[in-house]
Design a protein around this nucleic acid. Structure first.
Length: 383
DNA sequence: CTCCGGTTGA
DNA sequence: TCAACAGGAG
């Protein structure tokens, strides 16, 4: 999931020999793309399209075509960034980065109108199960439609990248079964990971032919770990990925599970991702994909509460059920990217920019958390 | 409630 | 420099 910014200080440069580093109290890491552009200027991004089923020694070690990230743990001192980080360079970085971000910008208004008109013109979506739009069963909050519309307008002017993009884009040129698997993999990788990082990992898997259950189950874990490296929690995810690939092969004939319950049984797939995979992979809306942004914002707006009370919901799952009680089904999919983007730019977890929010008049929590924060309370309100 | 591993804002 | 972050597992 994204933190707050698409700002120019982003300096990621996959495959261009740029080094970045981070610091934390106990551990320092830096990453470096192995093959720099100067070695193979024109083919740097298309190393080896063929599957390279694991030789015993890791693919990363034996095949120079595989682009991996090298990580070093516990470097004792700060690593120098080889390329200058002065102002002009930053400018270049921004220019090279923004188009990629642009790709991820959510295009919800189109899709919304499309789904409302229920037109079959959508190309990549294969499983076209018609979801009956159910009538909301609970009380709708006052003015929720105005609020949604207001947020849509705010989002239209300032797009924020959204983590579902990696999923929706994942392998959208692939055959349907492979595409579903790509969506599943993307979901596995995407949690706690910025989507451009996730997208890079998916591309590397794809380029190395490792975006099928067969290939992943044959590849060794080290290879997978190196390929997905910059994503958050890559060690755990590499292990989960192998397990999931094997489960898909043995229990689902190489396809992915088609129900929430079965998806939840996969390691690394929880409620949020299970609903995301159903929505995006199967185009079958079983529930709302609720992440912390949706959870936080719905509570701030007073849209959800513990059943029978006015208390805030305590978990995203609780929020999901509460929201599903009244939100019309055609909003179930759009609500996530809408609120996530909103939550990244305006309704931030800490110090929400209520002054810039056009729907603050409808929000019971507006201006309750001051941007200068201190005098409020020792224990800041998490929502 | 903590850990996972890296990024980010303060 | 360092704690907060974000989804899932334990």
């Amino acid at each position: 999931m994204l933190a707050l910014s698409i700002a120019p200080q982003f300096c990621f440069g996959f495959g261009v020999g740029r080094t970045k580093f981070s610091m934390s109290g106990t551990t320092r890491y830096f990453t470096r793309a192995l093959r720099s552009k100067s070695n193979a200027p024109t083919s740097a991004t298309a190393p080896n399209p063929e599957p390279d089923p694991a030789s015993e020694s890791s693919v990363a070690a034996s095949a120079p075509e595989v682009r991996v990230f090298v990580r070093k743990k516990r470097a004792k001192r700060t690593v120098k960034v080889p390329e200058k980080e002065d102002g002009t360079e930053t400018q270049d970085q921004r220019e090279s980065v923004l188009p990629e971000i642009e790709e991820f910008a959510y295009r919800r208004p189109n899709e919304l109108t499309q789904s409302r008109k229920s037109k079959s013109s959508s190309d990549a979506l294969v499983v076209e199960k018609q979801v009956p739009a159910s009538k909301p069963r609970g009380e709708s909050p006052a003015s929720w439609e105005e609020v949604l519309e207001g947020i849509r307008k705010m989002r239209g002017s300032a797009n924020a990248p959204v983590d579902t993009m990696g999923c929706e884009k994942a392998g959208d040129t692939l055959p349907t079964k492979e595409r579903r698997f790509a969506v599943l993999v993307s979901s596995l990788l995407s949690s706690q990971t910025k989507d451009h990082v996730n997208h890079g990992a998916i591309q590397r898997l794809l380029q190395n032919g490792l975006l099928t259950p067969e290939a992943i189950s044959k590849a060794d874990e080290e290879t997978i770990r190196n390929l997905i490296y910059p994503v958050g929690f890559y060690t755990r995810k590499a292990a989960n990925l192998k397990k999931v690939a094997n489960i898909c092969l043995t229990k689902y004939d190489g396809d992915i599970p088609g129900s929430i319950e079965e998806l939840l049984s996969l390691p690394g797939i929880g409620p949020k991702m299970a609903h995301l995979v159903m929505n995006v992979g199967w185009n079958n809306v079983q529930g709302i994909c609720v992440d912390t942004h949706v959870h936080r914002i719905c509570n701030r707006l007073g849209w959800v509460s513990r059943s029978g009370t006015k208390q805030k919901t305590l978990t995203p799952e609780e929020t999901r059920k509460a929201l599903e009680r009244w939100l019309p089904k055609e909003e179930w999919v759009p609500i996530n990217p809408l609120l996530v983007g909103f939550g990244q730019t305006i309704c931030t977890p800490l110090r929400p920019r209520c002054g810039e929010c056009s729907v603050s008049e409808f929000c019971p929590s507006a201006f309750k958390e001051t941007s200068t924060s201190p005098s409020k309370s020792k224990k800041p309100n998490k929502l």
